[in-house]
């Protein structure tokens, strides 16, 4: 336990100084976090961080811009629209659960005071489906990614604006997410911060490590490596596995809290999903 605390405090001190004692809250964390990246990548405006590696590397950006001419996610957006408009067996539809839909991506993740947990878009979709007698969708890829691709598309341009309400349980979820992001894990002993803060912009073998600022704006994402769409939690799973850590389940409390912290850190950056990545 002691060792863990030291590790966290150390990482924070070096990279982001997020760990200053309890009085520093989410707002102070946010300011420090964004300042860290804006200082490390001078000349890259806040909004640009929505483009990951392509915001900081010219060569990768040129390849990506060529791909964006015929976006590989486009057919999925169409398919997702059809899903959105197809009624459930009981005759109701997504619109009955989400009256403001489909442009609702910016409303998630959010703290749900009634159920005392972080509610993500994917979770809300499945709860809607189940309330109407439909089977829940799997969380990493396939229909859920297709439906959220349409929702993301319709939500483009809205700023990320996660709220951490003044509620000790919400605050605790935020802190758990932050600790998850900072904690070293796996046989290879990396934290998310090791790769995406301390070494953001550096090459790990042939890959350039993206800044964590903007990490959440463009999901679901079409990855050439996957040859299909995947959700944010699919990406978390992959990044856990590559350090030989046991991944958590998509939509587990751990990953929802992580998403809550990580999305909050991108507050102010407009949504630009679905994205295309290598």
């Amino acid at each position: 336990m002691l060792k863990r605390i030291i590790t966290l405090a150390g990482t924070l001190g070096l990279c982001l100084s997020l760990a200053t004692p309890a009085q520093a809250g989410p707002k102070e964390d946010l300011a420090r976090f964004q300042h860290f990246y804006l200082k490390r990548f001078p000349g890259v405006p806040l909004k640009e961080f929505a483009n990951g590696v392509y915001a900081i590397d010219k060569v990768s950006r040129e390849n990506w811009e060529a791909i964006e001419e015929f976006p590989p996610y486009e057919p999925y957006v169409e398919e997702g629209k059809e899903m959105w408009n197809t009624p459930f067996k009981d005759g109701k539809g997504y619109k009955d659960c989400f009256p403001d839909g489909p442009a609702i991506k910016a409303d998630y993740p959010r703290w749900d005071a009634a159920s005392k947990r972080v509610l993500t878009l994917e979770l809300a979709i499945n709860e809607c489906r189940q309330a109407h007698g439909e089977k829940p969708l799997k969380y990493k890829k396939g229909p859920i990614a297709i439906l959220t691709a349409y929702i993301a598309w319709e939500s483009r341009g809205k700023p990320t604006h996660v709220v951490i309400p003044d509620d000790p349980d919400a605050r605790a979820a935020y802190e758990r997410g932050k600790r998850f992001w900072l904690a070293r894990r796996g046989q290879l002993n990396f934290s998310c911060a090791t790769c995406h803060a301390q070494n953001a912009g550096k090459h790990i073998r042939a890959d350039i490590l993206s800044p964590a600022l903007g990490h959440t704006t463009h999901f679901p994402v079409y990855r050439s490596k996957w040859g299909e769409l995947g959700t944010l939690h699919r990406r978390f799973t992959g990044c856990n596995k590559q350090v030989r850590a046991k991944p958590f389940k998509p939509q587990s409390e751990q990953y929802r809290d992580l998403e809550y912290f990580l999305t909050y850190m991108s507050n102010g950056i407009p949504l630009n999903g679905p994205g295309a990545r290598k």
Binding site: T11, L188, N189, F190, Q198
Partner: peptide, 18 residues
């Protein structure tokens, strides 16, 4: 490598039995 520098990204190849 964390003995010399607790912040190092370098994995502890012996300690973690990599």
């Amino acid at each position: 490598a964390t003995v010399a520098n607790p912040e190092t990204p370098m994995p502890p190849f012996g300690r973690h039995q990599i």
